[in-house]
Amino acid sequence: MTAPNPAFFTALARLGDDRLVLGHRTSEWCGHAPILEEDIALANIALDLIGQANLLLQHAGAVEGAGRDQDALAFLRDAMDFRNVLLCELPRGDFAVTITRHFLHGLFSVLQWEALSRSTDDTLAGIAAKALKESKYHVRHAGEWVIRLGDGTDESRRRAQDALNLLWPYTGELFMQPADEAGLVAAGLTADVSQLEPAWRAQADGVLQRATLTPPATTWMQRGGRDGRHTEHLGHMLAEMQIVARSHPGAQW
């Protein structure tokens, strides 16, 4: 076991919390999707994301060296200790919001996993290589739907554009490189997310154009999640997610 590394712990929590929180939001669809095929697809995507979170938080716990496993991190931390971007915690909204969010975050994830698959930390590199395959599928699924919704009916186009307008100001945070990760990037442990933005934007624009959708003109971006300052939504989400685990301290499941 290597020496505890607080900065790397935080970086891994950022990675894991994005997937845990987005996976949770996705799992809320189960049994309520527009068609049975999407019930299955969304459950599958939720499962992938929570699976990624499980591995990342397990690794985070090991790196922290304080005896916390992935469940302690998922179920016993308060909202202020979560490090996911705000984009992931917004309520699931309608199908357009869900799909657009998967598209925007999935594109980012593919780029992030590509970079992290070259991490000098073997465990993280392995997780990234596995997650990369899953995220590519998520982007394909979401991207096809973004095009269908954008170029479908008047209503679907309006809803897809509304979703894009809602979510766009939350995308900037994906590329705000936390100052406390400078040493990790220098050591090749994590990747500098600010470098990923041009490729992300180019790919996003390509699909959005085909979908006849336009990103809003706003340049002001929401932020805070990476430092533990969240929206009002996360607390409610965690209250639900953590209720059983917290009601039975020390219990095994």
């Binding site: 799992s27 179920f75 499941w253």
Partner: peptide, 30 residues
């Protein structure tokens, strides 16, 4: 049958249980 079980996905008490339940409910849809 996805509904009564789906009711507990968001409250499953460990990540392992949550993943198993998601996989199960996904199977039912399949």
């Amino acid at each position: 049958g996805m509904l009564p079980e789906g009711n507990w996905i968001t409250r499953a008490p460990s990540l392992r249980r949550k993943m198993i339940l998601l996989a199960k409910v996904q199977d039912e849809g399949g």
